[in-house]
Design a protein around this nucleic acid. Structure first.
Lengths: 131, 131
DNA sequence: ACTTCGCGTAACTGTATGGTTACGCATTAT
DNA sequence: ATAATGCGTAACCATACAGTTACGCGAAGT
């Protein structure tokens, strides 16, 4: 048995998601596996182009491929997307914020911008160095 | 009420998130606004490099900039990330799947990897809430 | 065996991007 | 006024990548 909680590279994942075609491929595969030809048939670009997208998606572990006769079947593997979800979590709080916390935020902002500091502004992190 | 439902280009957003440095900049700005120099000071690349990253982030509306004396202050704007969150939502269901649908998925998976099909890994995959 | 699919890969092109250094232009400090 | 800061931009590299066409190889048909 294979402990499948591998830590896929966040890097490759975000990278793979950067292209709209690739995202569309994932969206397509959500509805079920497809073979390369079918996938290519859906998009307005050449088959080799899709082939390369699939390669990237494979590299990012967002899809798995296996042969089936002379077809290459591609299957979605949503697992790496968890990392993205995780990353997003930090930001989700921003738009889930209630007015109170929002107030804090804006206040801190305002304080910082105007010079007076009524809040944190972690000076400890003040990385100077070379600018 | 703010009706802040501007439709930022999903495209530009995903695009902007593709680079680790830019993601790091966002992570940094989550702690509060910073001016260009401060931001640049944190990273091991040149200031102009950061300047260009900031330009991309600006273009994606992920940050806002305003002058303050001779500083350019950058502020996080998490709004566009909502689109990403929204997109991810479709996939989130995959890892919140109930055992039935999960069974299909894992079964195919397992069968493929080993050749047999007995499905004894649901526990390993079974991550309901968070991780 | 011969032909036809299905599909990845090679080779090549144009463009975006990440980084660098040089520079220019405001804003501040002296 | 002059010097020093802060920071974007221009001009240049190298690399990645989206697309294309040409090609090759294994699986299916006939």
């Amino acid at each position: 048995m294979r402990n499948r909680s591998v830590t896929y590279s966040r890097e490759a994942t975000f990278q793979a998601l950067a292209d709209p075609t690739r995202r569309a491929v994932l969206d397509l595969l959500r509805r079920g596996s497809q073979h390369a030809g079918q996938i290519a048939g859906v998009f307005p670009v050449s088959r080799p182009a899709i082939s390369k997208h699939l390669r990237l998606l494979r590299r990012a572990h967002l899809v798995r491929e296996h042969r089936e006769g002379r077809h290459r079947v591609y299957q979605l593997n949503p697992e790496p997307l968890r990392a993205v979800d995780k990353w997003l979590e930090h930001y989700r709080t921003f738009w889930t914020m209630n007015l109170t916390s929002l107030k804090n935020f804006v206040e801190a902002e305002y304080a910082r911008e105007t010079g007076k500091q009524s809040l944190d502004r972690p000076a400890a992190k003040n990385v100077k160095g070379e600018n």
